[in-house]
Structures are given as structure tokens and as C-alpha cells.
């Protein structure tokens, strides 16, 4: 469903993505782990056509995204890390706007909006302006907007930022539902328990390169650490362990 091959993208001299290749099948959730600045958001933006890669190919639902962005956009739902919502619109208005952008007929859009608002317990707040919403409520509205068209490929960038534990649980159920309905989900997150519980496979991005990819079991084998948890594996593959120990020692926080 989502196939990225040898993708590279630079901002001036900074190489944000370097020869990245990943694949997400229909009905699969791939977790993308990476430290800040490792290239997760750049990869998501290339997939959503917001950025144009320097080289490589992206195919989503058998459509070449770089050659046919128009056709590809219809299959993609994207929740950005910091989604910008119009503060003067209400939740209901913003979702109507998002549905309208995708050409969903009004009656159908109304039904879907009500369903999402109820699911996220926002139906009482649907006529409130978004400026008065908490961070978590805004995130729920943004997720509903990203999924309103029931896209085949779903890209979620840090979806649980600012959410309370019940909402995180709810988000996990939504991701699980997407998987069961045959959607391909690329989930970028720092929250390791979320990735561990929600994802079928994990890709680790470091310095713009995919340094490891596979199920957690496969990663344990590759790292030769049969007992390691996801945090250990991430630190191991991202090369952060040794680096961090040295930094802590320098700062006098570890002997």
C-alpha cells in the first residue's frame, strides 16, 4: 500500500532523509521511531506531497505520488505533529471544512462528523470555537479531520501528543480499527509503549536513514539482545546509548 524506495531530501546542506526505503502493507501498522530531527516529519511531508523529495520513489495505493500527486492525495489522510486549526471556527465547522475539501457530500459528511464527535466525546463541544479547546481536544478534532474521508493510507505524526491516558487508549483503538479495515498506517511517535502496543513492525530512523526495520522480535535477534525492550532496542540501533553515557558523564550526572 505504501512503498518508499531510496528516498532522499536535503534542506540546503542538511540531509534530512538519506536513501530511505520502507513498506507498509494494507492492514498493517508500521511504527516509525526516531530522535528529534531524525527525519520523521520530513518523511511524512514527502509522503503527503507537502515536500518534494530530491530523489527516490513513493507509491501509495499503486499510484506514484511524485508523478501523480493529484490522484495520490485522494488516498492519504495526514495528522501533522502540530496541526494548525482555525481558532475562530467551531469543531463542527472545521470538520465540515475538512470534509468539503475532500468533496464529501453534505449529508454523508454530517453523519461522519457526528460519529467522530461522539466517539471523541466532543459532541457537547461541537459548537464551541476551537480557540477554547484544550490541546487534547484539538488533537482529536485534527485526527477526525484526517480520517473523515476514510483514506486508504493513514500517516500519523506524534498522534498522542498532549493526550490524557483515556484518550491515548481511544487513539489506540482507532488505530486498531484502521488496521482491521485494511488501512495502511504509518505511525511516527516518541511514545514507545504506544508503538509497542499498536504496531506490527517498527522502523528506526537515525540521521535521516532507516537503521533497522522489522517486528520487535526480529529487532531483538538483529541486536542480539533477546530480553531487550523497545527502548533498549531504539537506543541500540539509533546509536544513542554510548553517546548519551558520554554526555551524562561530561555533565557530571553519571559516574
Amino acid at each position: 500500500m505504501i512503498k518508499v524506495s531510496q528516498l532522499s531530501k536535503s534542506y540546503g546542506r542538511v540531509r534530512a532523509l538519506d536513501d530511505v526505503s520502507i513498506e507498509v502493507q494494507a492492514g498493517e501498522v508500521l511504527g516509525l521511531l526516531g530522535a528529534n530531527g531524525s527525519g520523521k516529519t520530513t518523511l511524512n511531508r514527502c509522503l503527503t506531497t507537502l515536500l518534494q523529495p530530491d530523489s527516490g520513489t513513493i507509491v501509495i495505493d499503486d499510484v506514484d505520488v511524485i508523478a501523480n500527486p493529484e490522484t495520490a492525495r485522494g488516498s492519504i489522510g495526514y495528522l501533522a505533529e502540530f496541526p494548525v486549526l482555525y481558532p475562530s471556527l467551531t469543531a463542527w465547522e472545521f470538520l465540515s471544512f475538512a470534509a468539503g475539501l475532500r468533496g464529501i457530500p453534505r449529508e454523508q459528511a454530517d453523519q461522519r462528523i457526528e460519529r467522530w464527535l461522539q466517539l471523541f466525546e466532543l459532541d457537547q463541544a461541537k459548537t464551541r470555537r476551537l480557540s477554547g479547546f484544550s490541546q487534547g481536544m484539538k488533537r482529536k478534532v485534527a485526527l477526525a479531520a484526517a480520517l473523515i474521508d476514510e483514506p486508504k493510507a493513514v500517516l500519523l505524526d506524534e498522534p498522542t501528543n498532549g493526550l490524557d491516558p483515556p484518550s491515548v487508549y481511544l487513539f489506540r483503538q482507532v488505530i486498531s480499527d484502521l488496521r482491521s479495515r485494511g488501512r495502511a498506517v504509518l505511525l511516527s511517535s516518541h511514545v514507545l509503549p504506544l508503538v509497542q502496543q499498536s504496531c506490527d513492525r517498527v522502523g528506526i530512523l537515525a540521521g535521516g536513514r532507516i537503521v533497522a526495520a522489522g517486528s520487535i522480535e526480529q529487532l531483538r535477534v538483529a541486536a542480539d539482545r533477546p530480553q531487550a525492550d523497545l527502548e533498549d532496542l531504539f537506543m541500540h540501533f539509533a546509536g544513542l546509548n554510548q553517546e548519551m553515557i558520554e554526555r551524562l558523564a561530561e555533565a557530571g550526572l553519571r559516574r
Partner: peptide, 12 residues
């Protein structure tokens, strides 16, 4: 400011 929403939609 909120361009990402409409840019990700068809025929923006």
C-alpha cells in the same frame, strides 16, 4: 497558516 489541510486534499 493552515495550508497543509488544503494542500493534502485533491486538486488544491
Amino acid at each position: 497558516s493552515a495550508m497543509a489541510w488544503s494542500r493534502c486534499a485533491p486538486q488544491p
